[in-house]
Structures are given as C-alpha cells and as structure tokens.
C-alpha cells in the first residue's frame, strides 16, 4: 500500500485514485424468502442490523423466489441505505443449498467494494456463512447481538452467560446477526435498481435436496412473535401440553415454544425448541409453563421483556429470572389464567 491510512483520509473522497474509490465500504446482505416471496423475519432484522454498519447496502436474493422477494423488499420495506438489489434466480440456489449458494456469494464478495457480508443467524444463514468464510479465508463473527462499529461486535458465548466484544480487522467482515436483537426493517418502499447476478458454473458437488416436512401453523412465527407461551417437562404429556398451552397461546395470540425436555418427550415438534440449541426469542411477554429454567433454556429467552413463570416447584430456577412467578398446579392455574385473560 502506497498510502498510509491517514494519508488516504487526507484526500477528499472525490480526488482519490479510482483504486481507492472502488474500495468504498459497502454491505452485501443475504436475504431469505419463502417460496411465495415473503421475506423471512430474521432477514428483515438482518437488514436493520446492516443499516447500523453505516454503509450502502446491496440486498442479495437467491433461488426460485428471488425475483418475487426482491420486489417485496422494494415495494414493502423501507431501508434507508439500500442502494441496490441483486437477484440470482438460478434453481440451483433453491432451498439455499450451501454447496451452490456459497460459490455465488464468494464470487460476489471477491468484489473489493464489499467490506461486509451480513446474514441472519437462521438455519440457512448458519449453514452458508461459515462455508463462505472458509473459502475466502475469513473467520466470521457469528450470532452478533450488537454492532459497536463497523469492525467491533458483541456476541454471546457459553449459552449467553458471557458477552464478548470482538474486533475484526480482516479485509471483509462476515457476520451473522441474532434476529431477536435487532428490530425488523420498517414498512414502506424503496426505489432501488434490481439487477441480475452473473450466472455461476454449476457446482460439481453431488448433493440433492430430497424434501421437507415443515410444521404448518397459523400462529405468529416463534422467532419474531411479541408473545410466547412455552411449555416444559412439567406438562408431562402431549395431551396436557395441547390442552393447557394451546388455549393460553390462542388467548394471548402468542407463538408456542418449548423446552428441550418437552420436545424430547414428544410433547411437541422440535422446531418449537427455545434455547441455546434451538431458537432464541425476545418477546414482550414470555409465559413459561412447567419449565424449570435450565441454563440452556434461559439462553434462548432471558432477554424477553416480561417473563411469567408458572411452576409447581417453588425452587425452580426459572423463578430467579421471572418478573412474575406463580407457584401452583398447572392443571388448575393455567386454565384459570386462560379464562381470566379471555375476559
């Protein structure tokens, strides 16, 4: 490098040699959509996190629903620093198969313009980002909960018991962000150009997406719901879980969550698991029913605004984090609560 950092700064931006102008910082944001082009809540949070980086943002949509997703972003959301949208509609990117998506991301990120790559800490984001990092020889910063500045980030470790502030001086910063720590991009519209990504040669890796089995639900999405009712082992069986948790959640218009114990005992589907190894939520109201409060579970919910615990065991650790605790028999207390809230 001919110029030291300070001497670059001494130049007014317009007089910089083109080499440097092309290195103006910019963020590439990986946006996930459902098949009908709806943008994932976690990606909307990633967009608002991207705004905090202070760079112009390019949103990247991939797969069969990319074009629809791009139009949704343009038409329905307001992201101030969004400057362009890239669409890569190739079917090879369907279902975000990392073997194929990674090569596209790597190709795009080779452009020195991009100083940051941001993804949501969703199942797909976690699947793709480290692979991109390995191929670019960069260590990503994962599950970021706060952005201090463009190279300094806060991330939880040890099931959320430790917060580490890390500085990244790599040429590019690859980050995944925890959705519950950033608000979703606001509604509105943004007038930006949509461009098509250059076609990439098909990956030689023999991998095939065989199918999926998704839980259909009319409930709010667990990751972004403002209210969550969660059940634990104290509910004993699936019948009690359905009879107690579901009506309470209905009354509160809440999403349903669960502990690992509840999932492992077959009380509900495992996509509802909240905790270090499941989803991380931070709703306005979290109602924990029959949950003891193991640290792995607390890791997933202790940033909730108001926590209510209903448990028959007065010594349960959940009461140490609950704003309001009620000790009692779930079979009596929960229906009574449901009934009184319905009024």
């Amino acid at each position: 490098m001919i110029f030291s950092r300070t001497s670059i700064r001494a130049f007014p931006r317009s007089s910089l040699p083109s080499l440097f102008r092309s290195r103006a910082a910019s963020t590439l944001a990986f946006i996930e959509t459902s098949q009908d082009g709806k943008i994932a809540q976690s990606s909307l949070s990633a967009l608002s996190a991207a705004e905090k980086l202070g760079n112009p943002i390019t949103a990247l949509f991939v797969g069969g629903s990319a074009q629809k997703g791009a139009e949704t972003l343009k038409g329905d959301y307001s992201v101030n620093s969004l400057k362009s949208i890239i669409v890569a509609s190739n079917e090879a990117y369907n279902n975000y198969l990392p073997e194929n998506v990674t090569s596209l991301c790597v190709k795009l990120l080779e452009d020195p313009e991009y100083s940051h790559f941001i993804v949501a800490s969703s199942a797909s984001g976690k699947n793709v980002l480290p692979r991109v990092g390995a191929l670019l020889d960069l260590q990503p910063i994962c599950d970021v909960t706060a952005i201090v500045d463009a190279k300094t980030f806060v991330r939880p470790m040890y099931a959320g018991n430790i917060l580490a502030t890390v500085e990244c001086n790599q040429s590019k910063k690859l980050i995944s962000v925890r959705a519950s720590s950033f608000p979703a991009a606001s509604a509105g519209g943004t007038e930006v150009p949509i461009t098509k990504a250059a076609e990439q040669p098909k990956s030689s890796i023999d991998v095939k997406w065989e199918g999926e089995n998704l839980v259909k639900s009319e409930r709010p999405d667990l990751g972004s719901a403002s209210r969550v009712v969660a059940g634990g082992r104290g509910l004993k069986n699936k019948e009690t879980f359905d009879n107690l948790v579901t009506p309470l959640a209905d009354t509160l218009h809440a999403a349903i969550g669960a502990t690992r114990a509840a999932v492992d005992s077959g009380l509900c589907d495992n996509s509802l698991q909240i905790g270090q190894t499941g989803k991380v939520v931070a709703p306005d109201l979290y109602v924990a029913v029959g949950i003891s409060g193991a640290i792995q579970h607390l890791a997933g919910m202790k940033d909730s605004k108001t926590i209510v615990a209903i448990n028959s065991d007065p010594e349960a650790p959940i009461f140490q984090v609950a704003d309001f605790g009620l000790v009692g028999d779930l079979n009596e207390v929960v229906p009574e609560l449901t009934e009184k809230l319905a009024k």
């Binding site: 960069l138 260590q139 910063i141 300094t152 939880p156 470790m157 959320g160 018991n161 430790i162 917060l163 580490a164 502030t165 890390v166 500085e167 990244c168 001086n169 790599q170 109201l285 202790k302 108001t306 926590i307 209510v308 007065p314 009461f319 140490q320 984090v321 609950a322 704003d323 309001f324 605790g325 009620l326 000790v327 207390v333 009574e336 609560l337 009184k340 809230l341």
Partner: peptide, 30 residues
C-alpha cells in the same frame, strides 16, 4: 487468531421479580 476479544462481560442481570399468590393477582400485575 483473526478476531481479537476486546472484553468479556456478564450480561445484565434481571431484576428480581415477585411471586404472586393467585391467578387474579397475576392478571392484575400483568
């Protein structure tokens, strides 16, 4: 190492809550 840890800290602890005696009291508090 590519990342430098500047500091580690414990997350803010939640303020101690209250235990309520009945469902009515819980609804009232909420």
């Amino acid at each position: 190492a590519r990342l430098q840890t500047l500091k580690v800290e414990e997350p803010a602890t939640r303020s101690a809550g209250v235990k309520v005696g009945s469902v009515d009291e819980l609804v009232e508090k909420l």
